[in-house]
Design a protein around this nucleic acid. Structure first.
Lengths: 356, 356
DNA sequence: CCGGCGTACTGTATCGATACAGAAGGGTTC
DNA sequence: GAACCCTTCTGTATCGATACAGTACGCCGG
């Protein structure tokens, strides 16, 4: 049988509490006794207090749950998500807390088991579709939570670290409108859940995925202000937030007579895919076709991508801090961070301007 | 106070065991009673059995610990590592097991606390420097472990899923030697721990980081067989496994009169960085300078990179399976997977061949 | 009418630790 | 020398569940 605290206590004829103190509160016993205890532990192969038992008693497990969907694709493939995760991990690590990655299965019942079995002190949600059933389960558990998306989704108890998605997207739209573009396509991820890559006819006010919805609505706001009817905009769904999907989506805007002169996307990854599609066709970004991204991932700069810079690492870091050191002031648990428009080479004036 | 099993039991006047069974063994009680119990739980806001208590009693936490160093850079930045992690997550997820990411601090004592406090059933090690103090702690805990690197590091108790690093690297070296190259540089990560980016004078037999060591020795094997003295090879350390570092490292081989005609690297990420360095200087990969990678990450193909293809996702998946469903046969807990040489456009004959 | 069996539930021991109140003993203070 | 304190250790209750043996009871065949 494996050694426990009691094993060591019996070996030395001291009490179990004392052995526990040797590990957890060294100031509660004499250095000599502590040394003897640690020596005996070493000798008997006792690996230190059982983490699970300790967690049960202390009521704390030093872990934050992070929900991931599908094959982790969103979470690790998109540099934005990686940056967010890094920030979260930094904040957690500084408090000796780990991240428990919960890969959500398809099966509803399995999701229930996974979420309610997860030994965590708190949950952090990012890149999770807001219609996912796991959210209700988390609410039922009553543990602290910070979300990165729809601030209304969880009610006021949840922390929130986000940006004004809609206003940010609007700035991109305004930039494009100001450059005189009128034939515009929008490539977005998860316009329709489980959909395929291709043009869709969707009402921006009815999109289910919050982030995409807000960004698309932001584009529309800008176009409306510029007198551009939304009906002229070609909306294309990308089945995954991936470069290949975006390139495939862009084809629908590029391979037609009334080719779009501007393609807006809802993420830099998608924008890079659109740039791939341009390259294949010998089209020059910023000259023949303007392209915008969103996030300002590291790859955006070398690609000359016009985009919105958002503090990705910071979002993760703040989420972690709010969970682990909740500020007294509730207002400081709901943060909207600033963003900035970064204009680079992939956007330029509408080449067809003289015609219109 | 929060509701527990007992709360529900008291409410309905049944025993605690029965309530427990309602959640964990539905076949042990009548459907009617179970329905009443779940209804009462709902009503009293009981979120289901406490995961920590359950884990303690069951002796199982449904989590695999994954050690990460530094700022997660290795783990998420390198597509190889992401692929590995994805495989691991797949295997874990299929068994309703989660991954606990342990971000190891610098401080020795903090590492001890983090590792021994981690509630996990097993550990999976990848991309962890084999000199790290955490390894000894894990061994002390006595939980199952699978390693992805030095098969000898943990003794025969540890599972192992790896490749023959040395033989694989040798194939790259042979390929380069066969193309007639004689002015060769090797860009490798962690040749020296905590070192800076730049040429180093290191004995291949004395490298501490297993993976780098084996790959460099594999290169040497090939060159030795081709009659190329190892002293002619310029060995350059990259402080991190990153594109920028590799570009900086490559500068040491490119910005000199006796420019290298071939640069071998220990990972595709490094190789892509070397290609960046070529591009800046107007050098043509495969013509002016040959470049090889290692791993065959998705980006390798579009870049035309000659490399070794290894089954990254598979490595992670098998590691997870060995941990969660250990095969009876010990031989099936130590796997060496096959690799293949993928020749693409970044390697070609030595352009200086006529001179020699 | 009785033994045997299956179903539905109960009761107690246990998982491995920590919290906290308290006791023993030595040293100070007045 | 009594009162008090501090250090060092002990003992018990507790964290919230699950395992397993046991009980009660209805039903069946003989």
């Amino acid at each position: 049988m494996a050694a426990t605290l009691q094993t060591i206590a019996d070996e030395l004829g001291v009490s179990r509490s004392t052995v526990s103190n040797a590990y957890s509160r060294p100031d509660q016993l004499s250095p000599e006794l502590r040394a003897r205890i640690l020596e005996a532990a070493e000798r008997l192969g006792y690996p230190g207090p059982n983490p699970t038992a300790r967690s049960l008693r202390r009521g704390k497990v030093n872990a934050i749950g992070v929900l991931l969907t599908d094959d982790l694709s969103m979470a690790f493939t998109d540099p934005y998500a990686v940056a967010y995760l890094r920030g979260l991990a930094e904040a957690a690590s500084a408090r000796e807390t780990s991240l428990l990655l919960l890969n959500l299965p398809e099966d509803e019942e399995a999701v229930r088991r996974v979420v309610s079995n997860a030994a965590v002190d708190a949950f952090c949600l990012y890149c999770v579709p807001d219609w996912h059933g796991a959210l209700e389960l988390i609410r039922a558990r009553g543990v602290p939570i910070v979300i990165g998306e729809d601030p209304a989704a969880f009610g006021p108890d949840a922390g929130y670290v986000g940006i004004d998605e809609r206003a940010a997207a609007r700035r991109l739209g305004e930039h494009i409108a100001r450059l005189g573009h009128r034939d515009i396509a929008v490539v977005a991820h998860w316009i329709v859940h489980g959909g395929v890559t291709g043009p869709v006819d969707a009402d921006p006010d009815a999109l289910r995925y919050y982030v995409t919805g807000e960004r698309v609505r932001g584009f529309r706001d800008a176009f409306a202000a510029a007198g551009l009817p939304w009906e002229r905009v070609l909306l294309i769904n990308a089945a995954r937030n991936g470069r290949e999907e975006a390139a495939a989506a862009a084809a629908h805007a590029l391979d037609r007579l009334d080719r779009a002169t501007a393609i807006l996307t809802t993420s830099d990854v998608l924008a890079l895919g659109v740039l791939d599609a341009l390259r294949v066709r010998g089209l020059r970004p910023g000259r023949d076709v303007s392209v915008t991204g969103f996030d300002d991932i590291p790859e955006a700069e070398p690609a000359g991508l016009t985009t919105i810079r958002q503090p990705s690492v910071e979002r993760g870091r703040l989420a972690g801090e709010i969970l682990l050191d909740p500020p007294e002031d509730p207002r400081r648990r709901r943060l909207t961070l600033p963003v900035s428009l970064v204009v680079r080479a992939t956007t330029g004036p509408n080449p067809l301007k003289e015609k219109s």
